[in-house]
Structures are given as C-alpha cells and as structure tokens.
Amino acid sequence: MNVFRLAGDMSHLLAIIILLLKIWKTRSCAGISGRSQLLFALTYTARYLDLVTNWVSLYNTVMKVFFIATSYATIYLMYLKFKATYDSNHDTFRVEFLLLPVTILALVLNHEFSFMEILWTFSIYLEAVAILPQLFMVSKTGEAESITSHYLFALGSYRLLYIFNWIWRYYTEEYYDLIAIIAGVVQTVLYCDFFYLYFTKVLKGKKLQLPA
C-alpha cells in the first residue's frame, strides 16, 4: 500500500458515497446511467469472487464487500425504489457493444486461462469502459448536475491515482501488471474530456453544459 493507491481507493469510495447520497437526498436518479451502474455491478461481482478463495487483508475484504454491496444498492435504488425518476429515454448506449469485445478480449489476452483469472481480466477490461453509457448520456442531454459531475470526477480520479500507484510499484517493487496498467490508462483517457469540462466549468461554479 502506498499513498497513491490509498488516495485512489478513497476517491473511489467517495465517488460511490456521493452517488448514493445524491440519489437518496434528492429521491431521484435523474441523469445517472443505469446501464453504467449495471456494468459496474458486473465488474465488481466478477472481480471480487476471489473474496471466498483468496484472503489478502481485512482492508481488502471490507472494501470489496463495500463495492459489491453498494453497486447492488445503487441498482436497487435506480430500478426499483426510485424507478419513476430514472431517465431511461436518454440511457440508450448499447452495452452489448462493450460486453462482447470485452469478453473476447478477456478470453484471448489474460495472464492464465483459468476461470478465476478470466473473470478477473474480464472485470478489468469491463471497468475500463463501463462509464461510457454514463458519458454518452451526459453528451446526449448536453448537461449534468453539479453533484453528478463531482461523482464523475471522483470516479475518474480513482484510476488516474492508480496509475501513479503502478509507477510507484514499478520503481519500488519492480512489480507491474500490464493488463491492469493498459486498461487503467484507457479508463483514465476516457475521462479526459470530462476532466477538462470539470475544471473549466464546474469548479468555476457553472453547470456542466456541453456546447450545442
């Protein structure tokens, strides 16, 4: 554990808390892509099945349980409790265009052709692109609430901080995992456009609005 990894995890934690608080306090999930949330739940389920086979630490276990539990809680809030506020007309990204290539890629490019390893690889690739339905929704409606922007910023920062963690680990432990690194870089790059708008608009008190 190093400071970048911890900061990344905290950023990820913060993103989820912001999202749940937004939905709970406003009693609405308007502007949030249910499809992205479903992909995240699938990501964490596939990756953290090793909860039952591989003990790392109490921290690791608590975080994994938190990520799985909150991803399903979000889906419950969006598709059941506050279903009436879910903006499904604008949430139209075709997730099969992500799931199919990610599955094939996981079967071809992995560290080891075993069930758990392929699930892990699938989750890494899927996480990299899981935010696309959400970004697509923002671009379709042309705007996002400030709270949604803060959520996206925290979520995007998490993988960026992990990149610094990987650089750190490479120099201090000579450890690196190419699958995680390349997918993490792709994931971060997808947020670049959003980061730019976040710094130039949201932080200056303006609403995130895309030019027409």
């Binding site: 790392v56 994994k64 450890y175 690196y176 995992d177 995680a180």
Partner: peptide, 10 residues
C-alpha cells in the same frame, strides 16, 4: 519477463 500477478489491488 512480467512478474506474477498478485491481484491485491481493488
């Protein structure tokens, strides 16, 4: 040679 993956990260 790439080191053995540890998957200790989240």
């Amino acid at each position: 040679e790439e080191p053995e993956p540890d998957h200790d990260e989240l």
